[in-house]
Design a binder for these strands. Structure first.
Length: 285
DNA sequence: AAGCCAACCTGGACGC
DNA sequence: TGCGTCCAGGTTGGCT
């Protein structure tokens, strides 16, 4: 796999937009229309405590749909909406209720026909909240989100950054600008567009904005087609526990010191806003 | 006000 | 072998 340097990073597969979309499709195919029959929480808080009583109030409802906004998943359970975010280490697995629950299972949703949806999250940076369906669009983390790059106008979102001096890599990580990019795909989109991560976001020419918008969409679409990125130690998996194959296609992420596949120059790493940025010093200007 | 940065948490990699 | 240290990730909240 592409896991030489990624193994060094020691990071699990982070669920960014393509991984979350892959999970969404996988879960929906397994659970759509099934009735919620049981709820259990571990008692350990995620980013906030899990409100078990609120989840219990959903018992009896059917999972009518599962939608996505950026990296958030929204389960539609009758009058209730269930909002999930996987943080950095979260997994949503559909498993037989008879099977042993994995370590760090913090929320278990039992569905009809003996299937359980298990939220497994060792680092507990995730989110699992339930609320009345009509309130979900007001939920602040969702209300803040910018355009979804698979559906919205990324070029317009980039144009709105006029006057911003922050580096474009940081701006791409801002979920209120474009929703769904994490550090892997922000770096990969910039590599594909030939733009250096340190470029001030407000200084991109219209032509370069257009190229970055296209590169962002193409990078995400390719990753989605590959079933997402699973790094060497196998972090990301879909609801069936299967990994994705995009790691082999990574141009710069986790490849410090390795040759650029286009020009052979050594990939560089720089720390920006406390996060690693990777780029080819020759192809990205 | 924009933008940086620490904090949250854990497991894996690394050094001694 | 085993311990300690460092680091990654996404998001929020506090600070400048």
């Amino acid at each position: 796999m592409g896991g030489l340097a990624t193994a060094m990073l020691g990071c699990p597969g982070m669920p960014e937009l393509p991984e979350v979309e892959t999970i969404r499709r996988s879960l929906l195919s397994r659970l759509e229309g099934r009735r919620l029959v049981a709820v259990a929480a571990s008692g350990s808080p995620l980013r906030q405590p899990i409100q078990e009583a609120a989840w219990q109030a959903c018992v009896g409802a059917r999972l009518e749909d599962l939608t996505r906004r950026g990296k958030y998943l929204i389960g539609h359970l009758g009058r209730h909406a269930a909002v999930f975010h996987l943080g950095m280490s979260g997994r949503l697995l559909v498993q037989p209720a008879s099977s042993p629950a994995p370590a760090h299972t913090h929320l278990t949703l039992g569905f009809s026909d003996g299937l359980e949806l298990r939220l497994v999250d060792p680092r507990r940076f995730g989110v699992a909240v339930v609320m009345p369906a009509e309130e979900v669009s007001l939920y602040p983390p969702l209300a803040r989100l910018g355009v979804d790059p698979l559906e919205g106008d990324v070029e317009a979102a980039l144009a709105s950054l006029a006057g911003t001096r922050a580096p474009i890599r940081n701006a791409l990580l801002d979920q209120s600008v474009v929703a769904g990019l994490g550090n892997i795909y922000a770096n990969e989109a910039l590599a594909r567009a030939g733009i250096r991560p340190t470029t001030p976001a407000g200084r991109l020419s219209p032509a370069r904005r257009a190229r970055l918008a296209r590169a962002t969409r193409d990078t995400l679409a390719d990753a989605l087609a590959a079933g997402g990125t699973t790094l060497a130690d196998g972090g990301f998996v879909d609801g069936d526990g299967n990994g994705g194959y995009f790691a082999v296609a990574l141009r710069v992420y986790g490849r410090e010191g390795q040759p650029c596949q286009e020009c052979g120059a050594a990939i560089r790493r720089a720390v920006m806003a406390g996060r690693s940025a990777f780029y080819c010093p020759r192809c990205q200007r």
